[in-house]
């Protein structure tokens, strides 16, 4: 399969710099895959699972926020957070999930806190989900 240059950078550093055959991400409108010779594009990302295929091997990760851009055949993924499945701390995600759930159940606090808890819950669920997919 034809490969293309791919860069993944987050505020924590350069996570991936090399060539890939395919990259799949969850955008704000649904899943999207990029392969070699993709048209130039800019897409904001949502929250979900991302997959990178390099050398026939598929690696998955939890990818949240940011944007994906393809420019003259070079693909750049700039997410807010990006964690490979094997690096995800499941117990931490579970703790975050329980904490967020408790805030949502209590139904007190202001609207902002509720929304924040909801977003935190979603992130925790995505992390857990990705970790489970990796194991299973």
């Amino acid at each position: 399969m034809t490969s293309f240059p791919l860069k993944i950078v987050t505020p924590d550093g350069l996570i991936f710099d090399g060539t890939a055959e395919m990259v799949t991400v969850r955008t704000v409108e649904g899943d999207m895959a990029v392969m070699a010779r993709h048209i130039n594009c800019v897409v904001p990302l949502g929250m979900g699972t991302a997959a990178v295929v390099t050398g026939g091997e598929r690696k998955i990760a939890a990818c949240i926020g940011g944007l994906l851009s393809v420019n003259n055949g070079e693909c750049t993924l700039v997410p807010t957070t990006f964690e490979w499945a094997e690096n995800i701390d499941v117990s931490r995600a579970e703790k975050a999930q329980a904490k967020a759930q408790a805030i949502l159940d209590s139904k007190k606090d202001d609207e902002v806190a509720q929304k924040l808890a909801e977003a935190k819950l979603r992130r925790a669920l995505i992390r857990k989900n990705v970790a489970e997919q990796y194991k299973g």
Binding site: V42, P44, T80
Partner: peptide, 29 residues
């Protein structure tokens, strides 16, 4: 040159979603 770039769902919405991310990144930096 990049006039042929495709924006999903459309340019305005892509922009509205990306700018706050960009600002957050710059502030953190």
């Amino acid at each position: 040159v990049h006039m042929d770039t495709v924006y999903e769902p459309n340019a305005e919405e892509a922009f509205a979603a990306i700018i706050p991310e960009y600002l957050g990144g710059v502030i953190y930096g």
